[in-house]
Simulated assay, not measured.
Amino acid sequence: MDAPMGLGEFLRTRRARLRPEDVGLVSYGARRRVPGLRREELARLAGVSAAYYTRLEQGQSNNASAAVLDALAHALQLSDDEHAHLRNLARPSRTGRRPPERPACARPGTRQLIGAMGTVPAIVLDRRSDILAWNPAGHALIAGHLDFAAPDSHCDRPNLQRLLFLDPHTRELYPRWEEEAKRAVSSLRLMAGRYSDDRRFAELIGELLLKSPEFATLWQRHPVHNCVCGTKSFHHPLVGPLDLSFESLHMPDDSGQWILMYSAEAGSPSDSALRLLLDFLAPPSADPVPAHATEPLR
């Protein structure tokens, strides 16, 4: 992921979505060759020279001050997530050559935690959305067609975004697949700016760009949003429609690991469907013991 070029792409997409009247400029009805604001218009709004802004957008300058970035964010009417993304792109990490990274693993305590959740579907992921662990409910909800032990394989463990875009079973799980895909790309864009020196992250993005035209189209639009909570719709092959709330719990260390958890509103049809799904996981009850078997020997 080339951070300077990523910065230019991001600035162009955000400049293109604004019209002169959106920012108080008069266009006088002149035919515009490009959508949105011109470079010189945005530069004027941000209080920088057109030449400097052009160098910034073309990836020829990577030393923009915090004041300039804040001014650009204000002029472009960026959200808080987009503003943070702009800062990440403008100041990519310079860690030099990174040592080989060991495969990520969920901590024993984290596995114990999601195992104790019981009826709450829970999944442990790393910053690339590789699935490190799941409890039985989480596995049954999002990937019951995969082996439960699949996350334990460091070489080919499932990846949540790869499943979404490249796995037909997962695609059928989401009746609003386009909405889920946009949400996924928005999160990936934010993380890609934050970890611009992550080679494996770049490889994942490259694979999705190559294999999924839908991903490539969405990626080009450069959506950015930190999707930490909300609702998702499912159409599960075993229990049918489900509307579930999701929450993300990010680990306080620098591992980038987080837990994705789902729940249903108590008493709702989705709650009943989720309980039915969990019933499928329960081991069959033992055959009842005949009454005479409990009688004392004489």
Rank of each mutant, 00 (worst) to 15 (best):
G118N: 11
D197Q: 14
P108V: 06
A192H: 00
D156Y: 09
H139D: 08
H139N: 08
I142E: 08
F148T: 12
K211T: 05
Q161N: 14
H169C: 10
A143V: 02
R194H: 15
H145V: 05
R171G: 08
W134T: 02
D197G: 04
L146Y: 05
P213E: 03
P241S: 13
Q220C: 07
F148V: 12
L160R: 12
A116R: 13
H235W: 11
C155Y: 14
L160F: 12
E214G: 06
C155E: 15
A106S: 11
R111K: 14
C227H: 14
V228H: 15
W177N: 05
D167S: 11
E172V: 05
S129R: 10
V185G: 02
R111Y: 01
I131R: 01
V124I: 10
F201P: 00
W219S: 03
F215G: 04
A137P: 05
I131V: 14
G138V: 07
G206M: 01
C229S: 15
K232E: 02
L208Y: 03
S129W: 15
L146A: 04
V239E: 11
L190T: 07
H139P: 09
D126I: 03
I142W: 04
G118V: 08
C229P: 02
D130K: 01
L190S: 07
V239F: 10
G115T: 03
G206E: 01
A137K: 05
G118R: 07
F148W: 13
E178Q: 15
F165V: 08
H145N: 09
F215V: 14
N159G: 09
H145K: 04
W134H: 09
D167T: 04
L209H: 03
S153Q: 13
C227P: 07
L132R: 02
N135K: 06
P213C: 03
L173H: 09
T217L: 05
A140Y: 08
Q220F: 00
V120Y: 05
S196N: 12
T110S: 00
L218Q: 06
R221F: 01
D147C: 07
H235Y: 11
D152Q: 15
R176D: 15
G240A: 12
K232R: 15
L210V: 10
R200G: 05
N135C: 06
P168E: 12
M117I: 06
H235N: 13
S153K: 12
H225Q: 14
P151K: 06
T217Y: 11
I131S: 09
V124Y: 07
L146M: 11
